[in-house]
């Protein structure tokens, strides 16, 4: 058991060492074409083999697919060790991936173009999840998706969304988000105890809180009149968070985005962002999370914590690369691109 745990630690730290550095990102954001971007990325050890394979196509979608594939290969290699030591925490990534795929399929169906999901889906994932992603891709209606979800726990949630008063993407998103948080909270409580459990819960909650804070801020700033936050049952939806119940309950009562930020800046995330900074709120929060993950990788003795932090950083790296690819495609200035990266 101890050897397997050490293997997870060692592998996570070794892979962490191969991550792209700030200098690498500087080189990538200054690329003018995707061919140049591919050339620069190919010089990095982590992506060399992937991009040196014959037939690599330098289009945005192909590169994004390759980069995502690389991330999942890392997930798979580390999760294999987790599985070997009998730890079920790897299921966090499986559940997360499955929910993401279901939601992507749903959004493509709701947009009226069922093909989008199939074309964007990464076949690599099919090997690792419990849903037939190709069957999802073949589905032409939400009912067919329900049939594909069959005997999975997602079937019940999906059915409840389909039976809701107003069937919209938001309904599905909120329902699955709530399920995800409940499932993960239970998974962590079953698998871990003590400081390890606390550390994991804090990290996962932080990653979810970032979305919560930025969504709430956006809702208060731009959509206050369209969808008042008071109407959103946040308390019942948000189960995995570092905010207290009272704080979450207060979210719907803020009159303005500034008041909300003022409140957050006095709470548990007070050191995570600065209201004077020019960087977007979400970028500041993500960068703070990155810093905490890096610290945990260096100093934590819990394999699952180190693994989770590495995989979170890997996810940020993939998001950065996708952002840069899109930025190059739409000729976004390099400095603007850089300001949006999670470094």
């Amino acid at each position: 058991m101890a050897k397997g745990a050490n293997a997870v630690l060692a592998l996570s730290r070794a892979l962490y060492g191969k991550r792209l550095t700030e200098a690498d990102y500087d080189a990538l954001v200054n690329c003018k074409t995707l061919t140049e971007f591919t050339g620069v990325l190919k010089s990095k050890p982590e992506y060399e083999a992937l991009l040196s394979a014959p037939g690599v196509i330098c289009t945005a979608s192909a590169l994004e697919e390759l980069v995502s594939k690389r991330q999942f290969e890392h997930f798979a290699s580390i999760c294999r060790y987790e599985l070997a030591i009998g730890n079920r925490f790897y299921q966090y990534f499986i559940i997360k991936t499955e929910i993401e795929q279901i939601l992507r399929c749903t959004v493509s169906l709701l947009s009226g173009n069922s093909e989008i999901y199939l074309l964007q889906m990464n076949p690599f994932l099919d090997k690792h999840v419990h849903i037939d992603l190709f069957a999802l891709g073949r589905a032409n209606s939400l009912q067919e998706v329900l049939a594909v979800l069959g005997r999975t726990p997602y079937e019940r949630i999906y059915r409840s969304c389909l039976n809701a008063e107003r069937v919209s993407y938001l309904t599905f998103e909120l329902a699955f988000q709530s399920y995800f948080e409940t499932a993960i909270k239970k998974l962590i409580k079953d698998c871990f105890s003590g400081s390890e459990r606390k550390a994991l819960l804090e990290l996962i909650s932080a990653s979810l809180d970032i979305k919560l804070i930025s969504s709430t801020f956006r809702a208060l700033k731009s959509y206050k009149d369209i969808l008042p936050l008071a109407q959103v049952p946040l308390q019942s939806m948000v189960t995995l968070t570092n905010f207290s119940e009272r704080e979450v309950a207060q979210f719907g009562k803020f009159e303005s985005a500034d008041a909300f930020l003022e409140s957050v800046s006095r709470g548990c995330y007070k050191d995570w962002f600065s209201r004077e900074s020019e960087l977007p709120l979400e970028t500041q929060l993500s960068r703070s999370l990155c810093d905490r993950c890096k610290k945990q990788i260096r100093f934590s003795v819990y394999p699952s914590v180190v693994m989770f932090c590495y995989l979170l950083l890997s996810q940020f790296q993939t998001e950065n690369l996708v952002r840069i690819i899109e930025g190059i495609k739409f000729q976004v200035p390099a400095q603007t691109l850089r300001d949006g990266l999670n470094l």
Binding site: A53, P54, G55, L118, M121, P123, F134, G137
Partner: peptide, 30 residues
């Protein structure tokens, strides 16, 4: 040339599409 991932998507996603016929002639590593 069609990559292995794309071929998988084609066969499993568009296997029953009435207007698509792909005839593989040879394979390489990719």
């Amino acid at each position: 040339h069609l990559s292995k991932d794309s071929y998988l998507k084609l066969t499993r996603g568009y296997g029953e599409h009435p207007y698509i016929l792909f005839v593989p002639c040879s394979t390489d590593s990719d």
